[in-house]
Design a protein around this nucleic acid. Sequence first.
DNA 1: ACGAGTTATGTTAGCGCTAACAAATAGTGG
DNA 2: CCACTATTTGTTAGCGCTAACATAACTCGT
Lengths: 333, 333
Amino acid sequence: MADVAGVAGVSHQTVSRVLNGLPNVREGTRERVLEAIDQLGYRRNRAARALVTARTSTIGILTVGSEFFGPQSTVLAVEAAARARGYFVSVTSLERYDADSALVALNHLVDQGVDGVVVVAPLELVTEAIDDAALSLPMVVVAARPDVPAADPVQYVFVDQRSGARQATDHLLGLGHRRIVHVSGPVGWFDAAERLRGWRESMAAAGCDAVEAAAGDWFAASGFEVGTRLARQVSAGEATAVFAANDYLAIGLLRAFWEAGLSVPDDVSVVGFDDLQSSAFFIPALTTVRQPFAEVGRTALAALLDGADAPGAPHVLTPSLVVRGSTGAPRAS
Amino acid sequence: MADVAGVAGVSHQTVSRVLNGLPNVREGTRERVLEAIDQLGYRRNRAARALVTARTSTIGILTVGSEFFGPQSTVLAVEAAARARGYFVSVTSLERYDADSALVALNHLVDQGVDGVVVVAPLELVTEAIDDAALSLPMVVVAARPDVPAADPVQYVFVDQRSGARQATDHLLGLGHRRIVHVSGPVGWFDAAERLRGWRESMAAAGCDAVEAAAGDWFAASGFEVGTRLARQVSAGEATAVFAANDYLAIGLLRAFWEAGLSVPDDVSVVGFDDLQSSAFFIPALTTVRQPFAEVGRTALAALLDGADAPGAPHVLTPSLVVRGSTGAPRAS
DNA sequence: ACGAGTTATGTTAGCGCTAACAAATAGTGG
DNA sequence: CCACTATTTGTTAGCGCTAACATAACTCGT
């Protein structure tokens, strides 16, 4: 910076002023400074700036370290939103799914001096770890947590999973299905719990028994495994539709039903959740629930940067049902 | 740090020594310092440290900002490898796929003072932008670039896409197929170009005509569109197998063939590339090529941190074919 | 027990920047 | 044309840390 000041014939402070866009710099001076900067290829040292301002212009993202569609999409959206607002983004993922890992990851970000943290890890143990950590750092959690502590300084942003599940279930009910099984996601995940709850609510409202089949994780292999069992229930007339907690599980289901010689949607309807890029091309095309990830990203960042002092109610966004070929009226019995 | 020194009854320098694990600190002193740190909940200021050491312990990752399986998996792997080695990771993605965006993104990282950059954006225009930028920063590019400039200070790490394509094609040839169409990925992507080339090599070696069908992007929708056309060729006996540039395209193909009433693999064999989590559950299960992403991540990071001064030959990893139900011998004609 | 050789600790300076204040210059009304 | 205000520029200090050097405190061998 001293070099730039020398070339431009001003003091380093004036250079700083130009760089920060402060007023009270004559136009001619500003131009000379910018010229000198350009000529010398000068770049401001962010560490020194951070040291004196006590702000790093960096936000941390804590995410589950896997290829889950929802979290992954959210992270991308937050990153894009942050970049658009001139922030740097530091990403850290969970090594394992336990409270210890969550704290390690959180500390990793705090050590880095981030100005705020967006948590994209909709796991109960992560939010618990955060509650315990009680950091004095602006923090936004993207997770459909139903019981946000009242005085929690942390802000919540999420897509209403329960609403999505109700839309999916109501769609099936509307087609005439009564025996709708839910293949639920793994325990400990808010999204799984909320989708399960939404399904239960709709089933209860319709006066139907809610029979659940739990999948061990979010992947197609689990969906297939559960689907193999469900195929027998379908054949026995014990189920006419399945609502899967996500599209990967639905892939496994479709496959299992196909292997069992069952036709979707003639013998059994299937609904997923997430709307993958390729869900429209499954066999058959999958009816599913789409989430507004880009909006989640923007909202989360806005909450973090602008609403630092306004925890208040969580920001809830609404998903929408996408009806395709995997659902139809139940076979007249 | 001064506070800690006060509590421990030592100078701030001794605290610094303890923190950095330097020798020549008596055990008792070290313990007192650690105790004081713990008691005060002290955290070292990274900005100040970065200022004086001129190193940020942060590496930047430049990636395409989309949900592509390969890049996404690679980023996760690099992040995990970096964390394991105590580095912070700053991620930036391309706003658009043009040279300008690439430079903006690269500058964004440089401005941040990263110690090195890993580029996970296997696009020609990105490597060109990097060549032009000629930054004096350790840099590793994860891209199957066939013509790495000799004196390039940038290191390359990649999975041998050509080998994967040859394995896929040779598998089909071995089954007896002669008319094997390749559905190629979008132009401008190294992976697409290399897979195309590998397929051509194998076809040429077998003395077969290589008929290509270009997809506009990497997604299932394009695969479906191309597949609709290919279905007619298959019916006309002009093709007996299709090698898709990735699994998403393959999904679209499977769907198109299904709609056309063609059986896979009886009427036409299909091979993909990437081995998605769910590829084993497609209908039929997809024969595809699996890439060692975790190894790519580790190798890239090792190259960045350890081999700063040894550009040399690119680090090439090898993918492996996974044979499943979507391939079989051609129908005897 | 004394000095040479080690090892442990303290002192000083400065990394590059911005905040706060001081000085200089330009602008304005009487 | 001068006193006075508004604007522009310069000067100084210090953010929290580490490198380099200075000093103090221990070892030992003789």
